[in-house]
Design a protein around this nucleic acid. Structure first.
Length: 297
DNA sequence: GACCAGGTAGCAA
DNA sequence: TTGCTACATGGT
């Protein structure tokens, strides 16, 4: 079984794996000690995910990010956890606002993730009007009920279901799993992908705003969920999902950015959060602010 | 028992 | 276009 260790000192701006995986941006990793989202973080718990049928385990030790997988996986780990992002470069040039500075300090070492797109799309369809812990538990349930079992190093893991596997579920079954009114959204979106009518990757290559518009054709996907898919999966780091927490931040700290509708408020806050003259990395700033506001105290 | 959580679809004006 | 409102569930 290939293993490896990526020295933390080699990563620009360091890395905090716990923050990165438990800050509510990805719902596709699970903690092997079963203590996801508990504040106590003694030891170096392993996290795992399944990508294209391959189990990938990672943990953070004092000096490295260790990985363990069924194939050579360093490049994949670097991609999934965005280990090549240069945090000092991003935050060195980020806006000089008191609340933002507090968020940078609070979440030092937090990196964005690059989730596989279909699982990410479904997990954020589930996310509406839900708390972070429950979103994670619902994606875990879908993996357990509909995902393929993968054997790895003596253990059994569950992959997130494919579009075909989820399209085979019924609304009624998913309601029985406590997905509530999101159940038909999940089935219908999975069917669109499984039937070849649409794929979230078709957003790639489009301008940011066209890409956001493109994703909203999926059932259960509006501007906010589309922004999450763009930011946490498709590498549009300028995307700033306007959820309840960010809307509160706008109200309290950047009231001039509230333009009354999503598209214009989005543009204003992206300019405010962005590095330099444009909106570069505005989504990076957003993720720090979200985590800071949601979990401080 | 309200109130809230990483909102959206459907419908009326 | 914009402005309601219904929608499930579980925790505080």
């Amino acid at each position: 079984m290939p293993t490896g260790a990526i020295p933390t000192a080699s990563l620009a701006g360091g890395m905090d794996l716990h923050l990165t995986l438990e800050s509510g941006q990805s719902y596709l990793w699970r903690r092997e000690d079963g203590r996801m989202y508990e504040n106590a973080t003694e030891g170096s718990p392993w996290y795992y995910t399944v990508v294209d049928g391959e189990v990938v385990r990672v943990r953070q030790t004092e000096s490295a990010i260790e990985w363990h997988a069924s194939t050579e996986a360093e490049a994949l780990v670097r991609e999934l956890l965005r280990l090549d992002d240069d945090l000092p470069e991003i935050f060195g040039a980020a806006p000089d606002e008191q609340m933002l500075e507090a968020a940078y300090e609070y979440a030092r070492g937090l990196r964005l993730v690059a989730d596989p797109v279909f699982p990410n799309l479904i997990s954020f369809i589930l996310s509406q009007q839900m708390r972070v812990e429950r979103i994670h538990s619902m994606t875990t349930t879908l993996a357990r009920e509909y995902g393929a079992e993968v054997e790895f190093d003596g253990g059994t893991y569950h992959a997130f279901p494919t579009p075909e596997e989820l399209a085979g579920a019924t609304e009624s079954e998913l309601r029985d799993l406590a997905l509530g009114y999101r159940a038909p959204y999940v089935v219908r979106t999975a069917e669109m992908v499984a039937d070849g009518d649409a794929h979230p990757n078709e957003a790639l290559g489009l301008s940011y705003e066209d890409a956001r518009e493109s994703l909203t054709r999926f059932v259960g996907v509006g501007d906010k969920v589309a922004d999450c898919v763009l930011l946490f999966s498709l590498g549009y780091l300028e995307a700033v999902p306007l959820d309840t927490w960010i809307r509160t931040a706008i109200e309290d700290h950047f009231p001039d950015c509230d333009c009354g509708n999503y598209a214009e408020t989005s543009q204003a806050i992206r300019q405010r959060f962005g590095v330099g003259d444009g909106d570069d990395y505005a989504g990076y700033v957003q993720t720090y602010v979200f985590h800071y506001l949601r979990t401080r105290e």
